[in-house]
Computed example of a mutant assay.
Amino acid sequence: MLNRPAAIRAVVYHLFVWITAFLMLYPLLWLLSSSLKDNSEIFTHAHQLTPSFIKFENYVTGWQGFGGIKFSTYFLNSLIITVCATVGCVISSTLVAYGFGRIRFAGSRFLFVCMLITMMLPGQVLIIPQYIFFQKIGWVNTFLPLIVPSLFGLPFLIFMIMQFVRGLPNELDESAKIDGCGRYAIFYRIIVPLVTPAVISATIFKFYWVWDDFFGPLIYLNRPRLYPVSLALKFFADPQQKTDWGAMFAMSILSLVPVFAVFLAFQKYIVEGISTTGLKG
């Protein structure tokens, strides 16, 4: 049994954890509660997490969308952009990480330094040049500006995966070469299976970033039928008419479903990927 001081410390610790967890979850709980309230009750009884009566009609109304476009269209757009950008980015980042981590070639250190420098470059300085470039080649009002740049890798993900690759013993590559494997065979048969935690962590990070991206679609997409969920939610708020807050919050809750599903399915890989990044084998 615990002695009295230890028991008091345990109680205080768990109480602190519960209070902190509640404070962190409160915005989400408030959003869920507001999605089931009537518009007149959302802000007049904002402090109450339990609605006076549950209004599931908010989800039906929100799913109908606006301008004759159902919200399923926005979900489909988000899935197309997110899946294509995530898959392309993770594959290319893994290949580049393998090149930097295992292959010595002329200028490799210089290119690696250049890649690190791009991580320090503020994204704001690229907005106008990128928009002008994509506008010149006719990619505005398409998904291409949101997908194609991701196909060439992301410095942060390259660096993260590269730490895993460098942590693997070089003897694995030498053994594979003795068995007749080339560079690509070593990559697909040896490296990729061993860096799976890092690859899955990179996939989750990229999925979150693309799914939540608001600024990119706002710049490049002007047609409502092309909007992703992140941009469509904003247009529920109409300054010239009465905003249907209940429907907006209901669709906000639904937009979180893929995020929570991905997190719950792969959370162990997130922890493993972060905790072992940078460790040498």
Rank of each mutant, 00 (worst) to 15 (best):
M1V: 06
L2D: 11
N3S: 15
P5Q: 05
R9E: 09
V11G: 08
W18Y: 14
I19N: 01
M24T: 14
L25Y: 08
P27M: 01
L31F: 05
S33M: 04
S33G: 15
S35K: 03
L36K: 07
S40V: 06
T44F: 11
A46P: 00
Q48S: 14
L49C: 10
P51S: 07
S52L: 11
K55N: 13
E57G: 12
E57S: 15
E57H: 11
V60T: 13
V60M: 10
T61D: 12
T61W: 05
G62V: 05
Q64K: 14
S72A: 11
L76C: 08
I80D: 04
T86N: 07
C89S: 15
F100S: 00
F100G: 00
R102I: 02
I103K: 13
R104I: 05
F105K: 03
R109P: 01
L111T: 04
V113R: 03
T118S: 14
T118M: 09
L121V: 15
P122H: 06
G123R: 02
I127Y: 06
I132H: 09
F134E: 04
G138I: 02
I147P: 03
I147T: 08
V148L: 12
L151M: 13
G153Y: 00
L154E: 13
P155I: 05
F156A: 14
F156L: 13
F156Y: 15
L157N: 09
M160K: 03
M160Q: 11
M162Q: 15
M162Y: 06
F164R: 00
G167R: 01
P169A: 02
N170L: 10
N170K: 12
A176V: 03
K177R: 14
D179W: 04
I186T: 12
F187K: 02
Y188N: 11
R189M: 11
I190R: 01
L194N: 14
S201N: 10
A202D: 00
F205L: 14
D212P: 02
L221N: 00
N222D: 12
P224V: 10
R225V: 11
R225K: 09
S230G: 07
L231M: 12
A232E: 02
K234A: 12
A237L: 03
P239I: 04
Q241T: 13
M248E: 09
P258M: 06
A261I: 15
I274V: 14
I274M: 14
T277M: 15
L279W: 08
K280P: 04
K280V: 14
